[in-house]
């Protein structure tokens, strides 16, 4: 058994770890993965030891603990036993690290993705109208604020620029 594990471990490289992480999703927004969010800052491999470096989104985000557990379980499930997950604070996470793919997934899910180029110009994820209005700076989770579309009249979440 242990020999088998050593064999598997010899095949470990960064891309296999990233593939595993691509399937670990945010517990609050299950369509988007930790790699889409830009939480995973680096994967370091020395011999058969893996270090996954992550950074918190918001300092009080309760999902961070879950995310760490989920990464732990996903790695274990793929037979990776020698690893640690390190949290770094600096540089501070920014929504600029979110991938284009991640933004598209958010939109399809009904959450307007962060728009750093023009934070006033928020597009309704339901009907695409730009005639929208801020209802509250703070939303259902730390990362979101609440908007309303003045055309289709639907309320929606906006993933804040951070």
């Amino acid at each position: 058994m242990s020999e088998e594990r050593t064999n598997t471990n010899q095949l470990i490289n960064q891309s296999t770890i990233y593939q595993i992480l691509e399937n670990v999703t945010d517990p609050e927004i299950p369509v988007i993965s930790v790699t889409d969010l830009g939480i995973v800052r680096d994967v370091l491999i020395t011999d058969d030891f893996v270090e996954v470096i992550i950074t918190p989104t918001y300092s009080g985000c309760p999902a961070m603990l879950e995310i760490e557990k989920d990464i732990h379980n996903a790695l274990k499930k793929e037979g990776i036993d020698h690893f640690k997950i390190t949290t770094v604070l600096s540089p501070a996470w920014t929504t600029e690290w979110m991938t284009e793919e991640g933004k598209q997934k958010l939109k399809a899910y009904g959450i307007a993705p962060p728009n750093p180029t023009n934070p006033e110009d928020i597009e309704c994820p339901q009907c695409g109208s730009k005639n929208t209005q801020l209802l509250s700076e703070f939303g259902s989770t730390a990362c979101k604020s609440l908007f309303k579309c003045n055309d289709c009249l639907e309320p929606f979440d906006y993933f804040k620029c951070h």
């Binding site: 918190p56 918001y58 300092s59 009080g60 985000c61 309760p62 604070l89 730390a142």
Partner: peptide
């Protein structure tokens, strides 16, 4: 409140 409690943990 959550932000502040998150900050105080750091």
């Amino acid at each position: 409140s959550l932000d502040l409690i998150g900050q105080c943990r750091m």
